[in-house]
C-alpha cells in the first residue's frame, strides 16, 4: 500500500536553517546538510529546502549546498526559492535535487510550469502555493486567494482554480501552504487542502501548522493529503520522526518503515 509521506521542511538562509512564525523572528537551528542527514537516518520520506529569502533578495539558490545534500542522503528532496527560469530549474536538478519547487514565479509566468514539465518531466515540478482566506466568494469561489512573495502580495487568483490550472500546465505535485496556519503549530488548514486534494489528479502536500502527530493523522484522514510537511515539531526536538510515525501507524495510516 502506498504510504503517506512525512516531509521535513528546512528554511535555509545563508547556509543555516532558520524557523520563524509567519516569517517573523527567525532563529538559527543548524547546518542544513547535517540536519538533512539526521532526518534522513531517522526515517523522513523526503525533504524540502526553501532558500527563503532568495526571492526577495534576488539571490540565486545555493547550488553547492544542494550538491552536498545530494552526496549525503539517498532519498528524494525538493528545492525552492526564487526559481524563475528553465536554467534555474536545470541547475537545481543537475546538482542532484529530485524536484524543484516554484511558487511566485509560476503565478507571474505560468508558462514556466509547462516548459519545466516538458523539459524535465512533470514529476520534477512542484507547485507551491500560499493561499489565504478570502471573504469575497464571487471572486474567490473556493474561499481562498493565492498570495505570492512569502504572503506579501495578493494575486486576485482563486486558490482552487490556480491549483487546477497548474496541474493542467504540468505541475506533478502541489504543496498547499496555509498562511493562516503557518508556524502556529495549531494544526493544518483542512478546508483548502481538501478542496485541492480532491480537485486535482496529482499528489497534494499539506503544509503549515503541524504541532502534534495527531495533526498529521487529521490532515491525512480528513483532508486526504498525500503527504505532510513538518518543521517546528521536529526542529524543536519535541517529537521525533519515529514517534510521529508510530502515532500514525497506531491510527491506521500507512507509513514507511525504516530498517
Amino acid at each position: 500500500m502506498l504510504t503517506r509521506r512525512i516531509i521535513p521542511c528546512l528554511d535555509v538562509r545563508n547556509r543555516r536553517v532558520t524557523k520563524g512564525v509567519r516569517f517573523q523572528g527567525n532563529v538559527d537551528l543548524g547546518d542544513p546538510v547535517e540536519m538533512a542527514a539526521r532526518y534522513s537516518a531517522e526515517g523522513c520520506d523526503e525533504l524540502v529546502f526553501y532558500d527563503i529569502t532568495a526571492s526577495a533578495e534576488h539571490r540565486p539558490i545555493d547550488l553547492a549546498m544542494v550538491a552536498e545534500v545530494a552526496r549525503t542522503i539517498s532519498i528524494p528532496f525538493a528545492v525552492g526559492g526564487g526559481v524563475s527560469s528553465l536554467a534555474d530549474m536545470e541547475r537545481v536538478l543537475l546538482a542532484g535535487a529530485e524536484k524543484v519547487s516554484v511558487n511566485s514565479h509560476a503565478v507571474l509566468n505560468p508558462a514556466l510550469v509547462r516548459e519545466g514539465a516538458a523539459a524535465f518531466g512533470r514529476q520534477c515540478i512542484v507547485l507551491g502555493m500560499d493561499p489565504v482566506k478570502a471573504e469575497d466568494r464571487t471572486r474567490f469561489p473556493s474561499g481562498y486567494e493565492v498570495t505570492i512573495r512569502g504572503f506579501r502580495t495578493r494575486t486576485g487568483l482563486d486558490a482552487l482554480e490556480w491549483a487546477r490550472r497548474a496541474a493542467d500546465l504540468g505541475a506533478g505535485e502541489i504543496v498547499v501552504n496555509s498562511v493562516d496556519a503557518d508556524g502556529t503549530r495549531g494544526g493544518f488548514e483542512h478546508t483548502i487542502t481538501r478542496l485541492v486534494a480532491e480537485g486535482v489528479s496529482v499528489p497534494v502536500v499539506a503544509s503549515g501548522g503541524a504541532g502534534h502527530p495527531d495533526h498529521l493523522v487529521a490532515v491525512f484522514r480528513e483532508a486526504h493529503a498525500d503527504a505532510a510537511i513538518v518543521a517546528g515539531i521536529l526542529h524543536t526536538g519535541e517529537w521525533t520522526l519515529a514517534a510521529i510515525k508510530e502515532r500514525l501507524r497506531e491510527a491506521g495510516i500507512p507509513v514507511r518503515r525504516v530498517w
Binding site: L2, R122, D226, A227
Partner: peptide, 13 residues
C-alpha cells in the same frame, strides 16, 4: 476512480 492519483508517487512496499 478519479480520486486515485496517477502518477503513483511515493514509497510503496
Amino acid at each position: 476512480d478519479p480520486r486515485i492519483k496517477v502518477p503513483h508517487m511515493g514509497w510503496n512496499a
